[in-house]
Design a protein around this nucleic acid. Structure first.
Lengths: 165, 165
DNA sequence: GTCTAAACGTTTAGCCCTAAACGTACCAGG
DNA sequence: CCTGGTACGTTTAGGGCTAAACGTTTAGAC
């Protein structure tokens, strides 16, 4: 059994009265849930022989629709990782034949990343498994509870984005 | 500007009708918030010359109260990382003089990890900075909104824990 | 045209984690 | 005893990320 967020906050107040603990009960479960979910997804995908970072990359390209092409900069904007990480992801995907890199003719010095047929096949094969699994996990909340939760998370994410990095 | 969770779900439905998208609007903001928060915390702590993993370790020991000692197994239970990661964290903290390792006299083959005076000082110096920062970020929601959000997150975390690893 | 500033992508060093293999200590049954 | 099982902690191989330094291309000022 793991320590609850409420217990962590109480422990700080007991040990160090005056410690600002008001964020703990909100952020601790968020960080924990994210870890549980991403670790679980990593395991699901390993069984399918693919890694999570590559799946994220292929997903973004697949969702873009035909011709399944985005520049490195667009990928960076859509994925919340650094440009360096995108560069590494694309290099790995290219290595495995799941995506290709080509100069983009849109002015600027841009690189166009495109899904290959093999990459398309991988994403079609994995996306339902991954999202189906997530679907099972989100079912711990009723539809009404989810409708309550979603706007609160959206508001919090928006606020945090204005204050970080 | 980044893609919203609603846009991601809509894109999947447009590109692949039938894709199970009901989890996306819940889990996407959770995973994103966790990344924004942990990356931000990493930066705050780097400015103070300490890394996040070490702070987590020292925090757990500090919250335990005098004599600030826990076994490796207890640390593992309280932190959601593997025993191997704890072993590495403790080794780093020991290297820097922030914690010590000693055989635990409680039967079994256990290792007792204890906060040193230097470790105690580091945690006292950092915890208010970190939690104060989090406090600013959680203020994007009103107290009422937080009271609505907390039990929903708790319920979801509990459910997910029963279904994963 | 030329030159400077900005945009873009890649590379590298360093950090941290997981999973799995491993070594060792304790305990209970025969 | 002693022997197998179990609990505990450590080590290692490999993956992924960030930040920062870097090289290159493009656009704009003049």
């Amino acid at each position: 059994m793991s320590t609850t967020a409420a217990e962590i906050a109480a422990a700080w107040r007991r040990e160090r009265p005056g410690t600002p603990t008001d964020s703990i009960e909100v952020f601790t479960p968020i960080v924990r849930l994210a870890k549980l979910l991403t670790d679980d997804r990593t395991r699901v995908l390993r069984a399918a022989g693919i890694d999570r970072a590559t799946l994220d990359l292929l997903s973004v390209l697949r969702r873009a629709g035909p011709p399944y092409t985005l520049t490195t900069r667009e990928l960076t904007e859509r994925t919340l990782v650094t440009a360096g990480a995108i560069s590494q992801r694309v290099a790995r995907a290219e290595q495995e034949g799941l995506a290709t890199r080509a100069p983009d003719p849109s002015g600027h010095k841009a690189v166009a990343v495109t899904l290959t047929a093999a990459g398309h096949e991988v994403i079609e094969r994995s996306v339902d498994a991954v999202l189906g699994r997530d679907s099972e996990l989100v079912a711990g909340l009723s539809a009404e509870e989810q409708d309550l939760l979603i706007p609160l998370l959206g508001k919090l994410e928006g606020f945090v984005r204005t204050r970080v990095g």
